[in-house]
Simulated scan of single mutants.
Amino acid sequence: MDIERRKKKRRKLFWIMTTCTTGLVATYFYKYIYKEPCMTSILTGEQWVTDVLSGHYIRCINAFRMESSVFKQLCEELQAKYGLRESKKMAVIEKVGIFVYTLALGISNRDVAERFQRSGETISRAFHEVLEAISGRTRAYMGLARDIIKPQDASFPGIPPQIEYDPRYMPYFKDAIGCIDGTHINACIPETEQLRYRGRKGNPTFNVMATCDFDMCFTFISLGWEGSAHDTRVFLHALNTQELNFPKPPEGKYYLVDKGYPDRKGYLVPYPKTRYHKDEFTNMPPTNEREAFNRSHSSLRSCIERSFGVLKKRWKILGQMPQFSVETQLDVIMAAFALHNYIRKNSTEDLIFRMVDENPDYMPCEELPDVIHARNNETSRETSKEMEKVRDDIALL
């Protein structure tokens, strides 16, 4: 009886071991050897990009926020100048398509993977390759952003044509070289660290300071500041940090700034305690020289507010940032500014820019002028005698 019992136990143990082994082998086979295809669409990512580029022009605008000719030129330059390379299974045109499509629609990795019929890992790798080529974090290449977010000529010779040929501003603002302002861009920050990133509206943001010329091209951006940072602090840091290469105004030239910035030489602020924004003059025209100056100052300085509006209207990712690291989020913001400039400089028929050019009062997106900055900050109350004289001379012309 004992022998029979031991035999039954051995047979049962053998059966259990066989069953377990078979299960493990089957699991390994289906997980690592046999994989059922997931992305089975007839139209692959590269085929879809090619189809969009060769189709009706509005399809390319909807998908990539730029004309097909500009998109193709961008691909060529990223490959020729900034180290972007095709891989064995993905061409440069698809990599750039993945990146720009993500910025334009602000959608998740999973949605982009479905559109391009690629795995999430492949989408992420292609996205970061293009991001690296634009932001220039590699040692071998500077990056598109560093080459395109800068003044055409740092000496700022001549008078900007937007002023020279507009009787509203000429000769009053003939020495203006651009505008400075800040904007808040939504950030994706862990809850434990959100407090210092909370901006004026209570949600976590980055406070980004930028300068732009009167052609709506950004010439400098300061990144990395939390939403709680004061505009004056960001401004003074940019001026006093040599490594940032802030394009300071030459002697006799100046930027237009609002009341949130210090009144100092080279930075022209409006008259305090005086009507300023254009909307305030809708029902009642200026009644004195100071109000007339403030209205013209506001009208000309709205160039940067409209530039921010175009930027945010074009790149939806700036409204809802994915769960990237903070460093990657800042690179994405830099890339959005760089592509804004790239489109402005290389496209003559861009729909958004054309709408803004043809309608001087059009303000895209939600980027509207803030209420006059009545900040009780001592730095903001400093005055510059030189700029007071410039302001008075313009007002009395």
Rank of each mutant, 00 (worst) to 15 (best):
Y261W: 04
T379M: 15
K150Y: 05
G83W: 02
T211V: 07
A210Y: 06
R115Y: 06
V49H: 02
V234S: 02
F127E: 02
L244A: 09
K89A: 12
T287H: 10
K273E: 15
E4Q: 10
R381W: 10
N359Q: 07
E129P: 04
P37K: 06
D370I: 12
T219P: 05
A80D: 14
A238M: 04
T122A: 10
E36R: 15
C20P: 09
S68C: 07
P37Q: 01
N294F: 03
Q152I: 07
K259S: 15
T40Q: 13
L144V: 05
Q152W: 10
K312W: 00
E305A: 08
S222A: 12
R198L: 04
L13D: 07
S325M: 12
Y254S: 01
I304A: 06
K9Q: 12
L311T: 08
E86T: 09
L43Q: 14
L13I: 11
K248T: 09
L311D: 03
R6N: 11
E76S: 15
K273I: 10
D350Q: 03
P247T: 04
L84Q: 03
L396F: 08
S124L: 13
A91D: 06
E291N: 10
I304G: 05
L339F: 05
V130T: 07
S380E: 11
T22P: 08
K253M: 04
T287S: 13
E291H: 09
R146N: 14
T21W: 14
Y261L: 08
H184A: 05
I394P: 06
E243Y: 04
T219F: 02
P262G: 05
K81D: 15
D361P: 03
L131G: 07
P157C: 05
G136T: 06
A133C: 08
K72W: 03
T44W: 08
E388R: 14
R5Q: 12
C179P: 00
D279V: 13
I333Y: 06
V332T: 03
E243M: 09
L13V: 08
C38Q: 15
D263N: 14
F353I: 02
T102A: 09
E291V: 09
F99Y: 04
L13K: 10
V92M: 00
Q162L: 05
W48M: 15
L236R: 10
N283R: 15
D175A: 08
T40R: 13
I61M: 13
D175I: 01
F156P: 05
A335L: 07
Y255R: 08
H184G: 04
F206L: 04
C212H: 03
T219G: 06
Y197A: 06
K88S: 15
R85I: 01
D2M: 13
V371Q: 14
F64A: 03
E289G: 01
L397I: 12
P157M: 06
S347H: 03
A80R: 13
N288D: 12
G319P: 07
